[in-house]
Design a protein around this nucleic acid. Structure first.
Lengths: 224, 224
DNA sequence: ACTTGCTTCAAGCAGATGCTTGAGTTTAAA
DNA sequence: TTTAAACTCAAGCATCTGCTTGAAGCAAGT
């Protein structure tokens, strides 16, 4: 018997502020420590609130994570889908690899320009390989639609690739993108200070061309 | 006051078998659920042993994970370092991009040929973005030496790249490799059954050329 | 036989976990 | 000013957590 979604009814319900503070605190902590290493008490404390408040507003810890994702992604995923659709329409069904990569990856890498954007990227990157079933469920759900459109657009941009080769190339693109967002600090450790995966500009300038080159390379099959 | 390293003294101590069973069970469970979502009791049960046995043999849960990594990596990392050194020596200081990628990534992707290798790859991939400080500490430590040699070899293979551009390209290589190993099932979800990141052969055939093309592409800086 | 040291185990400790409860406070509409 | 809903909170429940304890089992060395 949990409360599902009370949401606002008055113009500015007092609870909205608490709700937002809980989301902020949860996003911060989940990004920093990972879903499984954060308790609802940690969130309550960071939000200067009570452990029961999160359950009142969201129903469960899992639902808090879901709300964190939805708050940041609802708008951005819609934009990405729009950009991808535009690529396909404009280019008469054969978009350029650059254009679709820019449409899919650009918006997320540009999040790195703000502090809270970097924090969400960290959360998203780390969640992408989180084995916790609750996290997986949310990640699958929240990226499903835009993911499908990206695969379709990539297939249209690379008509010479077999389905299998497309699968592997997209895996590389996804992997690079997620690793950059997750920024675990290991590469800084190897390269020394002055290099950071959280630098959105660097990612756009240097990682995008790498991925474009890889995705646009001639197919392996049939070239030998 | 924990026992550090009792190890064998008799030719075949009875405890060695328990020790191995604990490592097997821990590897299995850590890979499947992630370090934070596995308790020492879970491990003991899966190893048909007692919760205290793991602490007796290893000292802590963290040390169990460390032992799991070391068991699989001691040999393989030495081989990778040897292969990388050979690349540099043979080619007179200017190895090919293919050769160093094969030396660094090949051995890990070929692990995908066996069931237990796939399991370890899953663990390694997932651990690479695990925010838990204990996991991070171990991952950093266990890949530090081979990671440095790979960076050096890549720098030698790509002398035209600035340090910054090399940083970003290696990030993409790392990311792709880790994502493939971590195999969270999301791409299968998008592509349908019949495609799996755990297929080591596919990875070698299709992902390697992608990464080679990206790493060997002309530099961004100074080309415009 | 018997000491010795390695190994296993059931039981337990102190603290943390997700979530619930029931009593209270605040708010805006009636 | 009353009323009812929205909201907050301290306390508590049942369970799980990593780790420890002390007693027992075991195989070799004497």
């Amino acid at each position: 018997m949990s409360i599902q979604a009370p949401r606002r009814r008055r113009s500015t319900a007092p609870g909205d502020e608490t709700r937002e503070r809980i989301l902020d605190a949860a996003e911060h902590l989940f990004a920093e420590r990972g879903y499984s290493n954060v308790s609802t008490r940690d969130i309550a404390e960071a939000a200067r609130s009570n452990a029961a408040a999160a359950h009142y507003h969201f129903g469960s810890k899992e639902a808090v994570l879901e709300a964190v994702f939805e708050r940041r992604l609802a708008g951005m995923n819609a934009e990405r889908e729009r950009l991808l659709a535009a690529c396909l329409a404009e280019a008469d069904g054969r978009p350029s690899v650059e254009a679709i990569l820019e449409a899919f990856i650009g918006p997320t890498l540009r999040l790195g320009a703000t502090e809270e954007g970097r924090r969400f990227n960290l959360l998203a990157g780390r969640s992408s390989t989180d084995p916790n079933p609750e996290v997986r469920r949310i990640v699958f759900q929240v990226y499903d639609s835009v993911g499908r459109r990206f695969v379709d657009a990539a297939a249209a941009a690379c008509p010479d690739l077999s389905r299998e080769e497309l699968f592997w190339r997209i895996a590389c693109v996804y992997g690079a993108m997620m690793y950059i967002r997750a920024d675990n600090g290991r590469l800084q450790h190897l390269f020394g200070p002055g290099f950071s995966l959280s630098d959105g500009e660097g990612a756009l300038k240097f990682a995008m061309p790498f991925l474009t080159a890889g995705l646009a390379a001639p197919p392996v099959e049939g070239t030998e």
